[in-house]
Computed example of a mutant assay.
Amino acid sequence: MPLSIHHYVTFLSASVFLVLGVSYSLTAWSSLPLNFTHLYAYLFHFDNSSIEQQILSSIRTPRLLTGMLIGANLAVSGILMQGLTRNPLASPSVLGMNSGAACFIALSSIGMHILGDVPSLLAAAFGGVVSGSLVIFLGGFFSARSNPLRLILAGIAINAFLIGITRAAVILADDRAFSVITWLAGSLANISWQEWHALWPSSVLGLLMALYVAKNLNLLALGNDVAVSLGINIGLTRCLACAAIVLLSASSVAVVGPIGFVGLIVPHIARRLVSNNFLLLIPVSALLGSCLIAWADALSRGIAFPAETPVGVITALIGTPFFVFLTIRNKC
Rank of each mutant, 00 (worst) to 15 (best):
A294K: 01
A185H: 07
Y24E: 05
F126A: 15
G96N: 10
N216M: 05
L217C: 07
V226K: 11
S13F: 12
W29G: 00
A144N: 13
S275M: 04
T327S: 15
Q82D: 13
P33C: 09
M209C: 09
L162E: 01
S229V: 11
L107F: 10
I55Y: 02
C239V: 09
G223C: 12
W200G: 03
I51F: 11
A144S: 15
L236V: 07
H113Q: 13
V135L: 07
L208C: 12
L32F: 12
L122G: 02
A243D: 09
S285I: 05
L326P: 03
A124D: 04
D117V: 07
G235M: 00
P321R: 13
D117P: 01
N87F: 09
V22G: 00
L115Y: 04
L56R: 04
I110Y: 06
L3M: 14
D47P: 05
W183Y: 10
L121G: 07
N224E: 15
F11D: 07
F17N: 00
L65D: 06
F323G: 04
G139Y: 04
A72H: 09
Y42R: 04
S30E: 10
H6P: 03
G71Y: 08
L121F: 15
I136G: 03
L172C: 09
L3P: 01
L32P: 00
A106Y: 00
F46M: 03
F104R: 01
F44N: 02
V94H: 00
I259P: 03
V253F: 09
S30Q: 11
G67M: 07
A250D: 02
F17V: 15
N224L: 10
T237P: 00
I51D: 10
S249D: 12
R150M: 12
V170H: 00
G206K: 09
V262L: 04
R176A: 09
A75E: 04
A241H: 01
S192W: 10
P283E: 06
I59K: 04
F142V: 03
C332P: 01
V204L: 15
L199Q: 00
I191V: 14
D117E: 08
I318G: 01
A304M: 13
S58N: 15
G100Q: 09
G235F: 03
L273Q: 01
I114K: 01
L211P: 03
S120D: 12
A106L: 10
G140P: 03
S23P: 00
G111D: 05
P62E: 11
I328A: 12
S285R: 07
S30P: 06
L279V: 14
A296M: 05
I328K: 15
W29M: 11
E308K: 13
